[in-house]
Amino acid sequence: MTPALELRNLCFRYPDGTEALRAVSFAVGEGDCVGLIGPNGAGKSTLMLHLNGILPERLDGEPTVFVGGRPLTAANLTAIRRDVGLLFQDPDDQLFCPTVFEDVAFGPQQFGLGGDALAARVGDALARAGIRGYEKRQPHHLSHGQKRRVCLAGVLACEPRVLVLDEPTSDLDPRGKRELKAVLRQIPATKLIATHDLELVVELCPRVIVMDEGRVVADGPTLSLLSDEALMLAHGLEKPHSLQHHHPH
């Protein structure tokens, strides 16, 4: 079966010369939920920006990103942006419209949806993100957790096949985290979650990819990788509390 998302030898260097990604390759199967972890500056966020062609600025080289088998090229860009939904770390960056309705409607509108179909799509996306009826609210009157879920609704409204989330639980209180996890579990799309929240990875992702200095340093089942104390410490991570009992005393 063709993987939902595949990277082949992805490299990227910022204009100032920093090498952010060095030959990253991995594949994610349809419907899978994969965690992406690593220390700050490992290249996780840069990687995510490549998944729907925001980086690199010019798409003229050999394609390195494949979504449902389709290469990410300048010609396929619109279709791929539709297939891959990106949830950014700071919800204030992603919520750029004056009302929740307009914000959630932004994506579908770009793809040509309008009228009642648009309103229905927005209502449905809000319901799936657990904030039904928020259409008329203004972003600056929402809490951080609510903003994050409006952003999620904005992504879900585009009906992506692959959902890419950057630090979805950062700055959330425990209740906000719990609610967001419940919402994420309900979403059937293929998911790639970049995060420092290892408990989230343990709960949601059967498989995890560890990155450091722009490289994939480990890729495998979550429980065995996160229990490997040496690996975790070598890459600025630590074994999550919930796995402490897996350690042979």
């Binding site: 925001i54 942006r81 539709r82 990106l86 960056d93 750029f96 932004f106 770009q110 992504v155 585009c158």
Partner: peptide, 9 residues
């Protein structure tokens, strides 16, 4: 980037 990610043209 966020606008592009949601298909801004």
């Amino acid at each position: 980037a966020a606008m592009c990610a949601r298909g801004w043209q």
